[in-house]
């Protein structure tokens, strides 16, 4: 089926991929220590000891491999994860305004992560992401159970449910802040703002692996996902195992959002901006919308993080503030276009 895709759609993915590559190059070259494109090209050879002369100074080399590259890759992974999660949530609710931040999934994940930090004691490196994934799973299940009627969630109900669940999760985080030690308090503050400064190779590869896995799973189920956009009853009548598919999607959303929040805190609106932009470019077909949502989300967060690092250098803005600055007007415009009647 994929071979039948018209060239126009493939072009959109190629352009988005090229844009992501450009954003990535920009992100690793800009900062307090700048690195030229030529040096970037030579860097892998340097690293492998194949170059005759070192192209990078030791300082540049340290900055590139230990700081910039893991951070840029984590921006790609987290942005892609949030973009894809938004597209999956919109398919599940058949509502183009669904977003992990607006519907309380990110807040739930933050509560899970905060609980692991404050109450977990020695939870190890895996405890934080696992707790965040479970927190996201819990809030998303609650929102879906409360907001949906006959397989679809009207916009006002869905958003109000998200508001209520977010408030509940935030009060939980607040309680944990109250109980936290000074060191824990510093770690927790970062969740409420959202930043990629906690990047590491392990985290970047972890979230990229989750993104790759999710794209592979949803790619195989793309025909069923398209049928699901027609409605749950319609999909069931087309022979799609709707309940199993919904469970898979719910777990993937929790995985993607949980890891994103555990590693980079609360970064909003990516899932709201990327999927509708993708649909504007390639239509509704999930086989194209899902990968393109991930690509656009990755581009968006990579550029937003670059701006967050460089605009007020040497200080750094929380990137969550920037995405909200960009995303909130977009959300308001879409809300107006959709009309609150749903």
């Amino acid at each position: 089926m994929t071979s039948l895709a018209p060239p126009r759609a493939d072009r959109a993915q190629l352009i988005a991929a090229a844009a992501l590559l450009a954003a990535l190059t920009l992100a690793v070259s800009r900062g307090a220590v700048s690195i030229s494109p030529a040096q970037l090209l030579a860097a892998p050879l340097d690293r492998l000891g194949l170059a005759e002369h070192a192209a990078l100074t030791p300082a540049q080399e340290a900055v590139l491999w230990a700081i910039r590259l893991p951070r840029a890759l984590m921006a790609v992974g987290v942005g892609g994860a949030l973009g894809l999660a938004g597209a999956l949530m919109q398919g599940l609710t058949r509502n183009p305004l669904a977003d992990p931040g607006l519907l309380g999934v990110s807040s739930g994940a933050a509560l899970g992560g905060a609980a692991a930090t404050v109450l977990g004691g020695r939870v190890g490196a895996l405890g934080l992401p696992v707790a965040a994934i479970l927190g996201g799973l819990l809030t998303w299940t609650v929102v879906m159970a409360v907001a949906r009627r006959e397989g679809a969630a009207p916009i006002p109900t869905l958003l109000l449910c998200g508001v209520a669940v977010s408030a509940l999760a935030s009060s939980g985080v607040g309680l944990l802040l109250f109980m936290a030690s000074d060191e824990q308090l510093r770690a927790l503050t970062f969740w409420t703002l959202g930043s990629l400064s906690g990047a590491s190779w392990g985290r970047a590869l972890g979230v990229l692996a989750a993104l790759g896995l999710s794209l592979a799973v949803t790619g195989r189920a793309a025909r069923a996902l398209n049928a699901l956009l027609l409605g749950e009853a319609e999909a069931a009548q087309l022979g799609v195992p709707v309940e199993g598919l919904k469970l898979t999607l719910t777990v993937l959303v929790a995985l993607l959002v949980g890891l994103s929040v555990a590693f980079s805190g609360f970064i909003g609106f990516i899932g709201l901006v990327a999927p509708p932009s993708a649909r504007l470019l390639v239509g509704a077909d999930q086989r194209r919308v899902l990968p393109l949502s991930a690509l656009l989300g990755a581009c968006l967060l990579t550029l937003a993080d670059l701006a967050a690092r460089t605009v007020v250098a040497p200080a750094e803005l929380p990137v969550g503030v920037l995405t909200a600055l960009l995303g909130a007007p977009f959300f308001l415009a879409r809300l107006r276009a959709a009309g609150l009647g749903g």
Partner: peptide, 30 residues
């Protein structure tokens, strides 16, 4: 069952930007 029995509902609430022919092709899902 989906290959033998098809349903046309009263109304279709789907507002995703499918083209009409794509919607018809979704009938081939089973």
């Amino acid at each position: 069952l989906a290959q033998r029995r098809a349903v046309v509902p009263q109304s279709s609430p789907c507002d995703f930007p499918f083209r009409a022919w794509e919607v018809v092709r979704l009938g081939r899902t089973p």
